[in-house]
Design a binder for these strands. Sequence first.
DNA 1: GTGAAAGCGCTAACAG
DNA 2: CTGTTAGCGCTTTCAC
Lengths: 360, 360
Amino acid sequence: MSKTPPPSAAGAVPPAEADGPSGQQQQRLQMADIARLAGVSTSTVSRALSGSKLVNDETRSRIMELARSLKYSINIGAQNLRLKQNRTVGVVVPYDSGTRQHLSDPFFLGMLGSLADALTEQGFDMLVTRVDAEQLDAAAAPFDSGRVIGVVLIGQWRHHEQLNQLAARHVPIVVWGAQLPQQLYCTIGGDNLAGGRLATAHLLAQGRRRIAFLGDIALPEVAQRHAGYCAALAEAGIGADPALCVAVSFLPEGGGLGVRELAARHAEYDAIFACSDLLAMTAINTLRQDGVAVPQRVAVVGYDDIELASYFHPPLSTVRQAIPAAGRALVAALLALVDGRPAPSQQLATELVVRASSTA
Amino acid sequence: MSKTPPPSAAGAVPPAEADGPSGQQQQRLQMADIARLAGVSTSTVSRALSGSKLVNDETRSRIMELARSLKYSINIGAQNLRLKQNRTVGVVVPYDSGTRQHLSDPFFLGMLGSLADALTEQGFDMLVTRVDAEQLDAAAAPFDSGRVIGVVLIGQWRHHEQLNQLAARHVPIVVWGAQLPQQLYCTIGGDNLAGGRLATAHLLAQGRRRIAFLGDIALPEVAQRHAGYCAALAEAGIGADPALCVAVSFLPEGGGLGVRELAARHAEYDAIFACSDLLAMTAINTLRQDGVAVPQRVAVVGYDDIELASYFHPPLSTVRQAIPAAGRALVAALLALVDGRPAPSQQLATELVVRASSTA
DNA sequence: GTGAAAGCGCTAACAG
DNA sequence: CTGTTAGCGCTTTCAC
């Protein structure tokens, strides 16, 4: 395990003219330079580069050619200042306050990718920020300082009130999460109630009767999935047994902890509904270590349908979240808000994907 | 599966004063407003807010209090323009040119998270951009337009030459990838040669002799892992059989395709070394469908040690990449470059993690 | 200790 | 069609 040297011409060329400590920009080409070289005024260059018809074709193409060959590119910062515009959107990913752990769920990756796609498509840049899940109001910082025109927050966690305050302050913000009463901000989310109901009904249809629930009810999305779970049980004439409901975080260790907790409670169960695929996978793993067969002894359904779910062993039954649609919807809602148009909250349809982990 | 309405007060409050189409900023507080309210000049506000000692304590605290209560935040764009500074770094994630698929590997998520951490720690913002893997030179765009002070590119793919040209143009860029001869840009990467060797030597030690290699040799990193693989085989007195080397992309379907291709070639093999955990997992999945026992009949080692690797069944043996260190190293190198200091390329140590997928 | 004025790189009237 | 001028929101000499 080496530490540095191998091949030949390693090491990089430092920038041409570096000046002072961190954060400085080197001397770079600007519009005035192009203007001088082209023998015109900066106004003409500006017009040419922005494709104004007010400039002679010959002049324009000469200027554009010059700019291209010199790899001149307009300084967006200055342009933004002058135009009072901005084509950057903030995407804020909360991290677990205790562990500072974050993004550990592949679901987030999908979401980020989907947002990146949707934003690129609309010609917007994406500024990614991390924020403590217990301080969600910090999500507004990039907006307050003018870096972004609005913010997409991935997950509302337990801070409904902080988010309401941001909305009251007119921070353009759209949140991936559950729709709640008295909500001033816009949420886009899956239909968690339906999702929870689908998963549970499916397990019941498989003849399971003692279905454990893994997830932290304090989170609105999880609470709604739990409500769906209870509803499905009730429809089958079964009461929800609190002993089967384990509050675990979305961190990967959650699945194992949940299974251990159920064991510690001496709970009897023949199925698990986990609130994320990651939890389902780690739960299955722990069950396997304990010699419990999945799905024979315990059937498992996850949530999200991350890419790996179908490759897991056994392939994971799960509730699919419409991630590509989510990105588009979040971006559309945010842009509406920014333009002063109304942005109604929205629930995206969810779909049950049945695979081997729940079918004995 | 509903589509919209439920609860009570849904829908969000549009921003106070919206003006015109997309990208506009609403009327917001600025320094002059604070100045007027505080009965001082903007110069004084500027000084107060930047903690200059040239301003009366009483005045300063009055101004700061005012700013805080009004949630005034300095306009970073204007400040950057005036100061000719910038605290934003570009992170560029290439996507597969054919499929436009991207970020599908959890490895990228880890890298993004690690970069976000390292950048946050240093007080930098992260602007995430996607770029066609066949047009890596487009990675410089956010730099050319002054949005970022430099770029971290995740993966060099096959376009060494384009990257060299960027470096020659003095674009501050640091690439996660392999160190190559005649290289003008800075790379940070794992020690792929050692990684390939470790994995292969381990499989040999398990008594395996016909080890298949899954990965696209056209990519420098994969080529180096392959070189390590060949070296380990050679040390064991075994020649590398080209029939056992399958060029597959990093897309998730690669693992399955690789196994199918080996079958089509009627290749005999008792082990697989896959160039990513994702490939290893999907390969194992296909083997399982074909009734081939892992690790009994075929032992498998992956690469990266993504979070899920230890939860997979069987738990995946793999070569761990030092992701947290990677983020810090990439950021440190980029900042060095930006400051005009030299940024030598670096290889980070890799480590073999042995789990059940390779131990019969 | 504080204010007035100039200017960061760009665009948009307004004249010619 | 093109140049001149003013100014986006901020910082910083330079006076007072």
